[in-house]
Design a protein around this nucleic acid. Structure first.
Lengths: 156, 156
DNA sequence: AGCAAAATCACCCAAAAGTATTAGCTCTTT
DNA sequence: AAAGAGCTAATACTTTTGGGTGATTTTGCT
């Protein structure tokens, strides 16, 4: 509590101190150069200059910076190359390895028969997998399953 | 050329003018209140205060606003928004307007029945269109048609 | 060893998708 | 006017998909 307070008002102390010193100097100058005719004008000029500079310094010090928020739109191109599956989303769905495999082949446009041949499995097995996939993904057709899989990042 | 120059240095003129006036006022005050003992200190204080304020004003006026630039990256996924169809590829396939339309709805995951309802056509008509599409795209299922359509840039 | 989940396969039935053929209509081109 | 392309639609048929139930085996984990 006291620290920020001290810091906050330190400028004022500094300012007051500088003022006092300057007044002292001026007083001294007054005594020394009283003989000169235009000494007073010089004092005034010196004071004006000094305090102007002090004011400038003060202003620069205390002026708070304007925050300038810049939004940069970063376009992310969808590419098959650097695709990385969203494992969190996968866990969310609860799909098993085999089911994900089937889903991926499904997304490639293969029919159940094609997938069965690809994986050396019975057509019935693939159908079972499909049913489970649809159930877990809460859809009712391969089209919607693929659409959702792409949307949630299971498939490129 | 001269205009910006004039504008740029106008502050200096103003500043000088103010300085001159203040000096004049002080001179006048000196004559008036010379009888007072501590009048000089008061002048100095007044000058200090005035020029400090002037300095602050000057600083705020001429200093470039301090800007704290905050960069916030906003990720923009490439989407259907700025998609432009590959007309060359379309011509290549020889798909008609209607067929492309059906293909697009097909890609949205709509069933033949849904497409029929959407376009106020008979289910049989949609089936005919589908057949033609598959024929022209050299595929044998909607899934493969969609896959190919995306690949050759007919569909986002 | 034993349990749960995963994976495998089978059978049935209904819905959807796909194939083939035909045909009427419009519009453009020749 | 004739020909061809495109759009529409119907019929009939086959294949694929989706959904349900049930069963067996494999696998992973405690």
């Amino acid at each position: 509590m006291s620290k920020p307070f001290a810091k906050k008002y330190r400028l004022i102390w500094v300012y007051g101190f500088v003022l006092a010193i300057l007044l002292f100097i001026l007083k001294w100058l007054e005594l020394r150069f009283i003989i000169y005719d235009h000494a007073f004008d010089i004092y005034i000029g010196a004071i004006a200059l000094t305090f102007t500079l002090l004011g400038i310094w003060l202003a620069l010090k205390i002026s708070r910076p304007k925050t300038n928020t810049v939004f940069i739109e970063k376009i992310v191109y969808q590419s098959t190359f650097n695709f990385s599956m969203d494992h969190a989303a996968l866990a969310e769905t609860g799909l098993s390895t085999r089911e994900l495999e089937v889903l991926q082949l499904m997304a490639k446009g293969l029919s159940n028969k094609d997938i069965a041949d690809e994986l050396f499995l019975s057509l019935n097995t693939i159908k079972t997998h499909c049913s489970k996939i649809f159930e877990k993904m809460e859809v009712n057709s391969r089209m919607k399953a693929i659409e959702k899989a792409k949307r949630i990042g299971l498939i490129p």
